[in-house]
Amino acid sequence: MSKFVVTLLNISIIALVVIVAFGISTYALSKKMTDYNNATGVIVGTIDKKDSIIIAEARGNVSKIYFNEGEKVKEGDKIVELINPELDSKIKVLSAATNNLSAKTELAVASQAAQQLEIVSPVSGYVSEVNYSEGETVNPSDRLYTIYTNEDTRFYIELSDQEYKQVMNLDSITAYSERLSQFVELNFSNLSPDKKINPDDKESKIGVFFTLKNKDDGENLLHNEEMTLLLDEKKEFTSKPFDVINGVWSKILSVD
């Protein structure tokens, strides 16, 4: 082999290597871009509310149900009224015999029990279940109402690694409720995510809870209702890689 041929061969191997390298990285870049463009930008999660169960404390017949399923309740609202004819007549008899000391004590006990016949909501929220209708008999510790409270309304969502990182990079996190046509601003409830769901799964997801930034937003949301998480900053994110670097710098120097 002459020197010329060797040089030619060396150059062609370099050219081949460069072509292969460019091929691989072009493939990688285009895959990255299509993945990004194909990402829907919205991910659906659900509202998670704590339920509060209202239990009867005394025996009686339901005389009045004040709220039906789905209706909003405020803390302190009267929600059920029971009557107990035996107790009523007992009170009448006892209040007649006012001089007897033991009767007095019994009267106090009976009127206490009578007060328990009026049931008041301990929380604000909305009624999810009413288990008795008017006229039915209720025993102590029977479940009368289930109320979803407005306290501790959370938003639960399952994210892929990619989506999780994307969300972490957002400045503000917003979800949208289609039913209410309303935007809801969210906070991370804790920064470390829950454990991966199905670690064996190839596309295992990370479960994350958000709390509401504005607690009043929780009033109108229903338990298990779907909301979509917006990754709206996507556009800003894609086209300007330098913004990311600037972002890092401003975070380090805490410019804002």
């Binding site: 691989i24 990285s25 870049l29 990182k165 990079n169 994110f237 890689p241 990311v244």
Partner: peptide
């Protein structure tokens, strides 16, 4: 080339 691709909107 990987550095160029990597810094095109990095996730992490």
């Amino acid at each position: 080339l990987a550095v160029v691709v990597g810094w095109y909107n990095p996730n992490d």
